Simulated assay, not measured.
Amino acid sequence: MPELPEVETVRRGLTPVLEGATLKRSLHRRPDLRFPFPDRFAERLDGATVLRVDRRAKYLLMPLSTGETWVTHLGMTGRFTLDGDPLGTFEDVVPTQGPHEHFVACADKDGVLTRLGYADARRFGFMGLIATDQVENHPWFKDLGPEPLGNSFSGSHLVEAFKGRKQNIKVSLLDQKIVAGLGNIYVCEALYRARIAPTTAAGAVSRPKLERLATEVRNVLNDAIRAGGSTLKDFANVEGGQGYFQHSFDVYGREGEACRTEGCKGTVARIVQGGRSTFYCPRCQKG
């Protein structure tokens, strides 16, 4: 599933084309993805201008000139694509590409037309239209914690959020009510960088270690964004290219391989926590 760096990579790819563009000839080829498309979805998009392309946690949000916000969650295999060459020869219907492309539209920016497609082989993604002034109160967003790259996220926030918490810190960091947008890959990497055992009770981690953890969460996310995210199976950016951060993983997916910390003779181990694989170095990350 695309995590925060991958969604942010998509956001940055869409922004130059969609911000300020007017949507035309929208079409969805099936009635639903994970959930049904909103009523009159294509009709409500057509003629709307995209004011911005934002991200909240793992969601893409596009506030529209109509007073609604177009929300998309990529699920596991969702992918937006933009045609590499501007198009100006559309007929009545925007062309679709492949059996898994379920939504398509034309973006008109300063008279230049670009085809926007959304493909989703497993259809775990979904789209919605929410009144822009109600987005923060919508069930998808109202309980989300702070953005890990925002000013509200810090070691002090983790200290308060983890106070008295007996659940292990790995699963606690995946709680979207504590931190919004963190996923399995980057939690494993951040805990390794902070030298914190994933099995440690969240409430037992000292303030200095949580301060370091907050810093490393930011660092690993920023490193991944600079690398265009991680492509393990399905993720691709809007131009169809892959991310490269998977080549820099210190622990994720490296079970049985040597720890990369200089002087450490440990081996990366894998355990299961909360139904998800956790990768860590038992020598570097002690309880």
Rank of each mutant, 00 (worst) to 15 (best):
residue 171 V to P: 05
residue 241 G to E: 13
residue 118 Y to W: 03
residue 276 R to C: 05
residue 255 E to G: 07
residue 4 L to V: 09
residue 279 F to Q: 07
residue 37 F to M: 09
residue 192 Y to E: 15
residue 266 G to V: 08
residue 30 R to I: 09
residue 91 E to I: 03
residue 167 Q to Y: 05
residue 110 D to I: 04
residue 245 F to P: 13
residue 15 T to K: 04
residue 121 A to K: 11
residue 19 E to W: 04
residue 40 R to Y: 10
residue 185 I to A: 06
residue 222 N to D: 15
residue 160 E to H: 00
residue 108 D to V: 00
residue 258 A to I: 00
residue 49 T to L: 01
residue 165 R to C: 13
residue 64 L to S: 14
residue 279 F to E: 06
residue 103 F to K: 06
residue 152 S to C: 14
residue 135 V to W: 08
residue 197 A to E: 14
residue 240 G to M: 02
residue 17 V to F: 15
residue 20 G to A: 10
residue 241 G to Q: 13
residue 216 E to M: 02
residue 265 K to I: 00
residue 98 G to S: 09
residue 281 C to W: 00
residue 54 D to N: 02
residue 184 N to A: 08
residue 58 K to C: 08
residue 286 K to N: 09
residue 238 V to P: 03
residue 262 E to V: 05
residue 53 V to H: 01
residue 32 D to M: 11
residue 90 F to P: 13
residue 247 H to M: 12
residue 190 A to P: 15
residue 99 P to L: 03
residue 144 L to D: 07
residue 237 N to G: 09
residue 179 V to G: 13
residue 130 I to F: 10
residue 33 L to K: 12
residue 90 F to N: 14
residue 181 G to W: 11
residue 226 R to W: 15
residue 108 D to R: 09
residue 239 E to T: 01
residue 87 L to Y: 00
residue 211 E to Y: 02
residue 264 C to V: 02
residue 22 T to N: 02
residue 279 F to A: 04
residue 271 I to R: 02
residue 263 G to P: 15
residue 39 D to Q: 13
residue 35 F to W: 15
residue 152 S to V: 01
residue 130 I to Q: 09
residue 49 T to D: 07
residue 171 V to E: 14
residue 172 S to L: 03
residue 67 G to K: 02
residue 90 F to I: 10
residue 284 C to F: 01
residue 285 Q to F: 04
residue 185 I to H: 06
residue 120 D to C: 12
residue 215 T to M: 02
residue 47 G to F: 05
residue 39 D to R: 12
residue 61 L to Y: 03
residue 71 V to N: 03
residue 219 N to E: 13
residue 204 A to N: 14
residue 50 V to A: 11
residue 267 T to I: 15
residue 42 A to M: 10
residue 128 G to V: 01
residue 87 L to S: 14
residue 237 N to M: 07
residue 27 L to Y: 15
residue 78 G to Y: 04
residue 125 G to S: 14
residue 180 A to C: 10
residue 97 Q to Y: 01
residue 151 N to D: 15
residue 24 K to M: 05
residue 163 K to N: 10
residue 201 A to R: 13
residue 7 V to I: 05
residue 226 R to F: 13
residue 153 F to N: 09
residue 146 P to N: 09
residue 169 I to D: 12
residue 115 R to L: 05
residue 144 L to Q: 06
residue 72 T to V: 11
residue 182 L to S: 11
residue 130 I to R: 03
residue 145 G to K: 11
residue 141 F to E: 12
residue 283 R to E: 06
residue 47 G to M: 07
residue 45 L to H: 12
residue 229 G to N: 14
residue 108 D to S: 12
residue 243 G to M: 10
residue 120 D to A: 09
residue 271 I to M: 07
residue 245 F to Y: 15
residue 216 E to W: 00
residue 85 D to I: 01
residue 132 T to I: 00
residue 103 F to H: 12
residue 23 L to S: 07
residue 20 G to C: 08
residue 80 F to G: 01
residue 222 N to W: 11
residue 84 G to I: 00
residue 43 E to L: 04
residue 114 T to I: 08
residue 38 P to F: 03
residue 138 H to K: 00
residue 264 C to W: 02
residue 236 A to N: 11
residue 71 V to A: 04
residue 41 F to I: 00
residue 27 L to E: 15
residue 221 L to I: 08
residue 7 V to Y: 02
